[in-house]
Design a protein around this nucleic acid. Structure first.
Lengths: 343, 343
DNA sequence: TTGAAAGCGCTAACAC
DNA sequence: GTGTTAGCGCTTTCAA
């Protein structure tokens, strides 16, 4: 019915300018345009300039599918984000955003996979060549995705550390050191009776790496320093309960290590109501301190750095560089005054 | 250096089984395999079965890039998630997860775009044909992405409603009705002095659709019902301040409408400390009630339904179905006992 | 109901 | 330093 011949703005894509259009416009061959774009061949400055001008003039954007078919590279990475209800969403989101941001600086996009699909999601995106690599978060000691990752020959980086790291590239905060750092900080200030308020029980039950390692670090440091130290799993709903139990059963308590973001508020309120504040009670938090709360001494979780470095490691693997191995970031403790020398 | 001929497990993809391998194995042509997969042609039952068995036996997974090149369909949608620090992250994440889950039921994956790239991100993924459509969240009244969307001829759905909706497909909770519903609920119970604790000031400044419309609904309902009603923007850091100001300046206050998830806790604590609880003070929340708090009467934000329906609308648009238009979900108020008839 | 074959738009090996 | 061209693996006419 249409008598107007179809033109390059008429095909359903925003712009159907192809590489051959650019080549013609610049008076070069398509491969030259391709090489200007990829930098895989040295091109004279004048040609480069002409090509770039033509790209600009025509608004050329390479077709991602064609590119991936020809080059076996998609410039997309997958990110598996946790969505269990026992993970702290804002922290997960900080990781996700830092991964996306870092990926963009490496000219990659991010495909979002949820944990719901489990190992099958990995098989699917790998098998259909949708992504160049994958970043997996919230890794458990005996994670079902790890064997799949091993069998897939898809470049991958884990944010978190499973039990058996053979052949894997992992990065995480050194949570064991973080737990120990908190104990040492308090023990150095004379505290001998310390409680560790941790993650929800389910997190330990599924043996989530970071939680398990923090607890281990806490316990061995406590043993080393000879302080009384007890672990208390805790979820937001049970924060008041846990606080009540501590207030009732542990009158001598002077140190509190909280490795549970959303419970910090309720916990401290409960203690405050009973007149237990600094310097009578010293508190250290592992993780980002919630907004709206007084500043607390804490071991910060460097989510942005972890996400960025995970992407960097993955890019190296995609390029065939880098060795498998585990990187643990040294924790740092920032004193914000919520801990004090014991009276 | 290798003397072993490359086989289908040897090329860097997990499996390099191609459609021609399946065709040979099943004794049919490649196109028949394609049609079995797409259902775009009727195939005899016996052929269908043989093809499916071969696919299964060989573990065939179509190459996404090749498919998108040939069919002009990627089976990927983009999702633009907000990452401003004034948006409530857990709610944003609920949307994201429901979008991913719904997209998977339509055989699509989700590419994660952050607001950071703004309109350019949309141009990029559209221009390089990476996605079949896009879902945009956190829409402002005069959103810079809207004109881009209009110019792009990329199927899109907005979760949220800009000022000018011409040609757009939008879906959201009817926040104006939600605001009015809360006022009516309180006015019906004899309350004549009501405060509306809203989003952070910046949210109104950038004219975020849902915040603006809730406030409008609140104010016009208050005028209609002839009750004293004042708006109070609020961020988590200023919750205590806002509570203090209300306690000081509004002794006659008996009704509280809170449209600010993270501030609910601090706010209610402040009031409770001054003995202001139900039935003396009636509280309605708009949004999901935070875990760990007593049950509150609320107008729930149906994030899962919104996300799922947004994907449904987008799939229709991708298939060339459906008309532009705005869908507003009717809000529902669930009475959980935090409101009472005025003494 | 099925097959043959022509692209889809790009990259990279090969040629100069 | 640059051009020619053979695919990459799939979908979809066209033909039977």
């Amino acid at each position: 019915m249409r008598n107007i011949p179809s033109n390059r703005f008429d095909d359903g894509r925003g712009s159907a300018v192809r590489i051959s259009d650019v080549a013609r416009h610049a008076g070069v061959s398509p491969s030259t345009v391709s090489y200007v774009l990829s930098g895989k061949r040295s091109i004279s400055e004048s040609t480069t300039r002409r090509v770039r001008e033509s790209i600009e003039a025509l608004g050329y954007q390479p077709h991602a599918g064609a590119r991936s078919l020809a080059s076996r590279r998609t410039n997309v990475i997958a990110l598996v984000v946790p969505l269990r209800d026992d993970v702290h969403v804002p922290v997960a989101m900080r990781f996700a955003v830092s991964v996306v941001t870092a990926a963009r600086t490496h000219d990659h996009d991010v495909l979002l996979l949820t944990q719901g699909e489990g190992p099958d999601g990995l098989r699917r995106v790998a098998g259909s060549a949708m992504v160049d690599g994958v970043i997996v978060m919230d890794v458990e000691a005996d994670d079902a995705r790890v064997p799949v990752l091993r069998s897939l020959d898809l470049p991958s980086v884990l944010i978190g550390v499973p039990e058996d790291t053979a052949g894997l590239t992992c990065i995480d905060l050194d949570f064991a050191a973080a737990g120990a750092l908190c104990v040492d900080h308090l023990a150095d200030r004379g505290h001998t009776d310390i409680a560790f308020v941790g993650q929800p029980p389910s997190v330990y039950q599924r043996r989530t790496g970071f939680a398990e390692r923090t607890l281990t670090g806490f316990e061995s440091a406590a043993a080393r320093r000879g302080v009384r130290a007890t672990p208390h799993p805790c979820s937001p709903d049970t924060a008041d309960e846990v606080a009540g139990a501590l207030l009732r059963d542990r009158p001598g308590l002077t140190g509190l290590i909280v490795h549970n973001e959303p419970s910090v508020g309720p916990l401290l309120e409960a203690f405050t109501e009973h007149g237990r504040t600094a310097p009578d009670l010293s508190t250290v938090v592992i993780g980002p301190a919630p907004a709206g709360l007084p500043k607390l001494t804490s071991v910060d979780l460097p989510a942005e750095e972890l996400g960025g470095r995970a992407v960097g490691l993955l890019m190296d693997k995609i390029d065939g560089l880098g060795e498998p191995g585990t990187t643990l970031l040294e924790p740092g403790l920032t004193d914000r005054g919520s801990t004090a020398r014991r009276a």
